[in-house]
Every structure is written in C-alpha cells, then in structure tokens.
Design a binder for these strands. Structure first.
Lengths: 358, 358
DNA sequence: CGCCAGCACTCATCCCGGAGGAGCGCCAAT
DNA sequence: ATTGGCGCTCCTCCGGGATGAGTGCTGGCG
C-alpha cells in the first residue's frame, strides 16, 4: 500500500534524508507519540512516552530525543510546559514510513460488501459513501463515475408543440433526460424517424464523432430533420457532460462530534461550506484519481485552508481497468489511519468490482 | 396571513382568553420585548423597555407588567437579575396576534422569481430550497411534489436478455426509469407493441385503474404479453410511489453560524441528525400541507426535541389548485418572523405558479 | 560518550473572593 | 395608578494563589 502527496520526486528525496536523520530510536519514539496522541488527543509528555515506547529509557533521555524531533519539525508543543503533538510533517512521516496497517477481516469485508446496493449506479455510489462514513464515523465522499460520452439508445417524446423530451440511455445503462425547445413543431412519426436514424447509425459513438458525421451527411436529410438532430446532439452532449462528474458526501454530521474540529466554530463552518462547494472538492479528489492506490492528504497539504486540521484519505476506483472516480474519507488529522486506510482501500476495490460486473 | 399550530379550536379559545387577559399595555410591552429580543438576543430589562415601548412609563411600572407577563407564562428570566426573554408561549402569542408582517417589495419578488430555475421539476424544487436558505440565511426545506399516479408515456428498452429498462414519463412531464427482470426474453417488436397498447389505451390513467382494466382484458392478449404488462405496471407503480415524496434541505450550514444554536454542540448534532432522518421531518411538514397559508411551529410544538430552540415556518404549494407539497424554513426560535413569513409565503406562491404553468 | 537523577522554571488550569453592574421586587409617597 | 428609592440577587469580570504537568539544563556516573 503506497501513500503519498503531491510532488513525488522531492518527497522521495526528502524521505531518504529524513530516514537517515532519524535513527531508529527517534523513529520508534515518534511512532509511539503519534499513536498515543491519535488515541487520546492529549499532548504526550516524556514520562508517558518512557512507559509507552517499550524502550527502557528514562523520561530525561526521551526529552533529549523529543527536543531533536521538535527541531526537525516533526512535533511541536502547544505551550511551554505541555507535552508534544505531531505536526503535519510528523503525521506525514508517520503515515509514510512508520505506519503498519492491519488489513480487514474477511468478515468485515463481507459485511461491507453486503451493504453496497447494486441495483443502480447512483445507488451504488451513494451507498458506498454511506458505508465509508458509517465505518469510519467521518465524512464519506465518492466522486461519481465519469461517463463515456456516448449513448446506447435515444428517444424523442413530444411534450407540447415545439417542446420535446429527449431520453438518453448511456452506455452504462443510466438514463438521462432533457427538454428541448425546437423552432418547428415535429410530428410523432418524424420524431420516431429521427430517433431511428440516430439509433441505427450512431449508437455507441461519442457525440463529437456523431456531430462530425451528421454534418457530413446532413445534405441527404431534410433540413428540419437536420436541425432536430443537431439540437438533440447538443442537448445530449450537455446532459452527459453536466451530470458527468459530481461528488456525493455523506455523514458530514459525524464531524460535528469530533472535538478537534468542533472547538473552532468558524473553521467548522468553513469546512461545511467547502462541502457545499462541490467543485473545489472535486479538484482535490480528481488529483487522487491520477495516482494509484491509497493517497493521503494531511492538513493543508491540499492547499485548502478549511481542511486545516483535516486529513483526506482517498483511493481511485475503476471500471474494466480504467479509473473512473475516487472514493475517500474526510476526517480530522488525528484519525486512526491504520483503520481508515484499509477501509478506503477495500471500498474502492469492492466498488470497482461491483461496477465492472454490471 | 393566518398563522397557527395544530389544534385549531382549542387555540382559538385560548387566544380569546389571552386577548382578554392581556390589556393593550401588556400587549404593547410584550411586542416591544419580543422584537427587541429578536433583534439582539439579550434578555430585555425594564429600563430598556421603558425607552423602547413608546409608552411614557417608568421602569418601575413596567416591572409590574412584566411580572404579570411572567406569571402568565409569556416571558421568563434566565436568572434572578437578568432581563426577560420570551417563552415559547410568548412567541406564539406574538406571532399570532402582535406581529405585523411587511410584504416584500415588487423588486424582491422579481429577484426571487428570477432565481427559480424552471427547466425541470427537480431543479425547480431544489432552487426553491436554495432561495429560501439564501434569503433567510437559515435552512430551506421543500417537500417534493406528490405525483399523481399516472403516466403520459411509457417505453420499454431492451438492455440484455431478460433485462428491460422501463422509461416512464409522468403526467407532470418528469421522467422515471427502472430496470425490470423478466422471465422470458422479448423481441424489440414485442416491446414496442406492448408499449403501444399501454400508451394508446391507458395514458393518463392511474396505475390501479390500469391494472384492473388490464386484468379484465387480459384474455385477449397473449399470455407472455400480459406478464410483461403486469410487470411493467408493478414497476411503474413502485417507481412513482418510491420517488414520490422526499424532502430537499439546503443551507443547513447557515445554522452553524447561529449562536443561539451552536452554543450547544449536542443539540446542534441532534438537529443535523434530524435533517438526515428525512422521514421524521416529512411527517412534520406534511402536517402543514393540510392547513392553508403560512404555518409556524415554535420550539418543541412539533413534538421533536431536536427542534427545541428552533421554529419552522411552512407554507403549502399547489399545482392546479391542489396542494402537492410544502416549502419551509427552519431556523432559531429567535428569528425575524416578519421577514421570514412573507418570504416563505411568496416562495410557495411562486413555486405553485411555476409548477402550474408547465 | 550515552544515560539519567535532580532541580529550577514555565505555563495552563482550577478555585477562590471581591468589585462592579444590571435588573428585579417591594414599599411608601404622590 | 404611577413612580422614585432602597435593598437584594446573581452574573461577569478580574487578580491571585495553589496545583500539577512537563520542560531544559546541569553535573555526575558507568
């Protein structure tokens, strides 16, 4: 399971340096500290670490190491005489090299699989989002599959004079529909004819292709028919592209209970505003779909202030071997990564296979 | 503009009593107090009221009246030496008989009208919800229209062997679709034939009617055709009823900023959980659609604890003179009713006319 | 050179207790 | 009936002492 942020090259270089700089003792202590802090959210002092770490060291010695870790920016103290808490960089190092994830049981996987509803792409996606939020008790988020820009079947339906309903079955079997205003009033038989032409000749092609070909063959058709076709193509194109990418979020409520976040009412509001602003979130998640495997964004690494004290754990999912979307979890930086990571990982895989079957 | 809760008769009786008991001075003072409290959220003292009320009374006299109002349960003091704040009953009386709503400007109405997107019932409903939350800065909520259980057009589409897509255009012009598993594999022409029969004979009827008539006329059809029909009818019925009532909420985030609510993290979480539990909310809102005009639920009047410090302002909307749903706003009990009420009222009316046009 | 016990120091938190102020209730005077 | 005045209550806002956690540093020990 690989996990990384943006800027791979520089990251790897840095990692090499850091692994050199941090001797085993420092690493062990950092690991213990992060784990402890994740577990109870209190700054961790030298005394506590001395008991936890397993190393047989006195608090005083540990203080020396902690001072080093602080100098290197892995940990920080909220005030003079408190313990230390991990910085974003500390979390990063922890997640990249110290973390040991424990895979889920077969039982848990089966449970998870059972909760994915499969009767419909939309339902599948929302249930995946639900499952993620239920299991992690954070916010679950899924980017809906990119649709291939083509259609399996097209149909016109007359609603009123000069008002048509365009019904479009996408290659994936989902149905889109759209109302078109036309200049001329078409008879039902004309509509059937137009639909037939499109279905017989162009089913499965992308709209761009069709437009090009229709334009070439247009002269053979009556002019009004051509108009209808182009209008239909435009509408279809728009319908597909408009509904093509969206992000489904569930369990935002869970974040209200997290005291790390809900202490700052303003930040919390910013965060929820971000959730309403789908597009921004979409960009972040799209990032993830270019890499493979689980990715983790810690704190502001994504470049969004509202995510200041949050981490985003994502994994892309695929249909027929092609990445089509991203699933993920948004929670506080202080989250149980070793649990969340496999959950996200498995969910992505289950979603992939559920989508591929159909 | 009428505004009332449940239990009309008893309410009217009580109102008569109360109006008798409260002399004009008490009413004026109560009105001033509530308005002031709504405006700045601080308990209102006698000195402040003496200046505000317009009556030329000393604080001492006002204290007498306030004591009476407190005895009658209209106001309460959070602690010994604080001012008074309205109780739920106080708000109730204020809203029922003291409140003077100022209707919106033509300009505002036009603006509002412009923001309602009309290309689609679903979009119309969500934009109405958005508009409500934007204008009031609280949570906007709309119950989607009850659909009449009939169809304008029906269509079968073969997805695979024994797997059909049923496309259904409702009387309102919305499109539903549903996948049916069949026992037998039908040819495209059979599907067209079945669709034709349904369209020509039964368009516009309710599914129950159709089922009855189909059953009677079934013998004339080939058996497999009959099977297809009944399957289609069942699926259509289900599709319509399933998607028939839902509640769209937007702008929940706004409630995070309200200090009346966000002081109590737990209550806030309960509230947001209520939002996710659509059904409970639906019941409350359905209540409203049985009355006519704007209705107001103050505090726990609705019988839901999460709404403890909230008020719900609702109004039913109609299509062709028949009530089909409800719009509303959920905000803190301490809200500017004189502004929210006309907003909800107008939105309901605009929504009605937008839906009726189509 | 690494380790560690001990000590001084720094803060955060908690818990008073007093001062200030807002506002009420009551009462006696008008 | 209205009102000025007085005493009282209780919230809020400090400031200070006590407590405790945890650090940094130093000097001694193996």
């Amino acid at each position: 399971m690989s996990a990384g942020g943006a800027g791979f090259l520089c990251k790897i270089v840095r990692m090499a340096n850091e692994t050199q700089q941090l001797n085993e003792r420092a690493q062990l202590l950092l690991k213990a500290l992060v784990e402890r802090y994740i577990a109870d959210g209190q700054p961790v002092g030298s005394r506590a670490l001395s008991k936890l770490s397993g190393l047989d060291l006195s608090p005083a010695s540990i203080r020396n190491v902690m001072a080093d870790l602080e100098d290197m920016g892995f940990i920080a103290s909220p005030h003079t005489s408190a313990g230390r808490i991990p910085t974003a960089r500390g979390y990063r190092f922890f997640v990249d090299t110290l973390l040991t994830v424990k895979p889920l049981d077969r039982i848990e996987i089966n449970q998870l699989e059972g909760q994915l509803q499969v009767d419909n792409t939309q339902k599948l996606v929302t249930s995946a989002s639900h499952v993620l939020s239920e299991l992690t008790r954070f916010a679950g988020v899924v980017v809906t599959p990119r649709r291939s820009a083509g259609f399996r079947h097209i149909e016109f339906l007359k609603l009123a004079e000069k008002r048509l309903l365009l019904i479009l079955v996408t290659a994936e079997g989902d149905v889109q529909n759209r109302i078109i205003q036309t200049e001329k009033s078409y008879s039902p038989s004309e509509l059937v004819e137009a639909a037939n032409i499109l279905n017989q000749n162009y089913a499965g092609c992308s709209f761009e292709d069709i437009r090009r070909r229709v334009q070439a063959e247009l002269k053979q058709l009556r002019e009004d028919m051509g108009q209808l076709m182009t209008a239909a193509l435009a509408a279809g194109d728009q319908a597909v592209s408009e509904s093509s990418e969206d992000v489904v979020i569930s369990g935002e409520v869970n974040l209200l209970g997290i005291d790390d976040l809900s202490s700052n009412m303003n930040k919390l509001r910013d965060l929820f505003n971000l959730f309403e602003h789908r597009t921004t979130l979409l960009q972040l998640l799209d990032h993830s779909s270019r890499a493979q495997g689980v990715q983790i964004f810690i704190g502001g690494e994504a470049g969004l202030q509202p995510l200041d004290e949050c981490s985003v754990v994502t994994a892309p999912y695929e249909v027929d071997g092609k990445v089509v979307g991203t699933v993920g979890v948004i929670g506080p930086t202080r989250m149980a990564y070793e649990r969340v990571i496999p959950i996200v990982d498995i969910t992505a895989k289950l979603l992939s296979s559920a989508l591929t079957q159909r």
